[in-house]
Design a protein around this nucleic acid. Sequence first.
DNA 1: GCAAGGTC
Length: 656
Amino acid sequence: MARKILCVAEKPAIAKSVAQHLSGGQVTTRSITGNPYVKNYDFDFNFGPPWGNCSVTMTSVLGHLTELKFPAQYNQWHSPPPWSLFDAPVEDVVNQDKKAIADNIAQQARYSRALFVWTDCDREGEHIGSEVRRAAFQGNRSLEVKRAQFNNTERAHVVRAAQNAINLDERQVNAVAARIELDLRIGYAFTRFNTLTLQVMGGDLSERVISYGSCQFPTLGFVVDRYFRVKNFVPEKFWSIKVMHLRDDMEVTFSWRRHRLFDRVSVVILFERCLTARMAKVTKLQKKPTSKWRPLPLTTVELQKLGSMYLRMDSQRVMKIAEDLYNKGWISYPRTETDSFDKGIDLRILIEKQVQDNAWGPYAQGLLAGGFKWPRSGRNNDQAHPPIHPVNYVSLAALSGDDRRVYEFVVRRFLACCSEDAKGESTIVEIEYGDETFFTNGLIVLERNYLDVYPYEKWTSSQPLPRFNMHETFEPTEANITEGETTAPGYLTEPELISLMDANGIGTDATMAEHIAKIKDREYVMTQARAGGTAQANSTNGRGGRGGRGGRGGAQGGSNAGNGGGGGSVQQFIPTTLGVALIEGYDGIGLETSLGKPFLRKEMEIKMKEICAGTKSRHDFVQETLEQYREVFVRTQQQVGVLRAACRKYVFGDQP
DNA sequence: GCAAGGTC
């Protein structure tokens, strides 16, 4: 065997399954000294030209290998002063707990011709690849470095990746290197500044760390923003017209096309015209097929949102359980942005494994017997992992409490994805009455399809509608003016917060739950059960004037959550006085790029993409961004009184 | 005593 090649994956599980596939099962496993998780796998593989048949050692890291740090002379908080961290030297060091892993790589590199990087195909993965390269060069400077491109560990795909390796993408490496540097400098500088300038105010502020992070602050900002919208909400009166008609012992309520108006006099005038007209006329009678779309393949963000909505677990708990289920081999990798299945994956085999279950087995059987439909494709693909799906069957009896509920959700969601949409027939009856238009909807659910295996969503037939004829006229049984008042939105719930973070590029699928936990831990926010225990998100905003059958039907792809089991009430986020003071303080500094808003972080994300596209250099990006934050820093220092005033007002309750 | 990002 002429050549030896070293392969390094991002995590042990990938190293193991890639080794299995490439070796065809002929593999020797060795433990390494100093780390219980990482293993070395030895086998032979033919990489094709120019490498040919090689002896391979496949190993892994555990995520990032190195960490960026300030030198020891910057360890004190007071001096050198916080602002010096903007251009202090930084050094890239191997974490103490990763030392053994780096040494293993260096050692294995010593007799290798080439290093093949098998980290995840995303930006962070590319950077981890560069960290691996550095470790390998410690053992062998003349190593050739290649990168395997793969986004799942299906056998043929892995073999193809091994035989078509490319080079590391230095642009992606640079983009991440810049992010790491910026997060470190800015995070440390503002954390020290906040803590030092506010702790001298004493009292409740004297002992705490008042951290700033490019993700934690915008996350807090969302919570505070909603809090003020609730607090400052002024109810507004509105009026509407409701028409009722009794026919064949069925009572129909027609809703007003205008929905509602905020001016009573206008409504009275329009209403009187209706009464004067006396007769209503059917102007539209439409029956049409409608459907409720089956869900998309499951991503991490969606799992976290729905876990909170359907299972009443906070996002950190859901992720912890999902990781557990993954490590035990029941479900696929739980951190993914991908919401479409690769054409290469054999979904039927995965469905077959679920046939043995008592609860959903028969449904899975039905899919195999002809009900199967290839899942919808969403727009997101991280090019690294497939959507979350069950990979092996485990009986619910073998799982405990919350594990059971998460596994069941993942399975049902997967089976629902592979099903037909629910089908129904919707009827719209529209009438003209005076100068106004009113309508009513009817819905008959004809085929439940995916809903049979996915009880988390509800779609039910409405009360039957009596028969109407086109152009017929009739005198409505009753018509009156209804009155209502807009209601305040609720405080932010976890699914809403995750949606906001996702939409604004705050954190990644793997870290969103951590940022939320962090601002709780720092006592910037607290959670509280929503009074009344109603399940739904907010937006009960002004339903006052709507009548009976309105609003049903045709809820395509909407997120109408059923309560889907899992009692308890929704948790909502309320900022503490400190949380409010920080956001209001920073907003009060008067820069449009307040640290409490997501804009700066969003801009960072855009510029990282530019680096990856080759239209911006790492150096320019770092300098520009540091300049932006330095300006915020200087202004904040000058106007530290504003920040302190906000703390006096909220934390100490002083009257301004 | 500080960040965010990987993963166990």
